[in-house]
Amino acid sequence: MKAIVHIGLKPGVLDPQGKAVADTLGRMGYSEVEAARIGKTIELDLDDGLSTGDAETRVKEMCEKLLANTVIESYRFEISGA
């Protein structure tokens, strides 16, 4: 069983890395790029014996406690292979 966690900065939180990427893409000729936001993806391999419901509860807890800082970040995740 896998959980894929996506973490991104909340709207309104300055993302200087994203801005640098958008600026560079613009300089490279990709003028259609209006903005870029950088986030991260964390893949968790989970015990196959876990029910999907339990996995969702546990992964949500992991996000709240460690994986995301909810002051500045939001998260979402998908569980697969249950």
Partner: peptide, 17 residues
């Protein structure tokens, strides 16, 4: 301390990078 919640807010990358 910010991560533990003992202080409010968060520290992120310097605006200048």
């Amino acid at each position: 301390l910010a991560e533990t919640g003992l202080l409010p807010g968060a520290l992120v990358r310097n605006a200048s990078l």
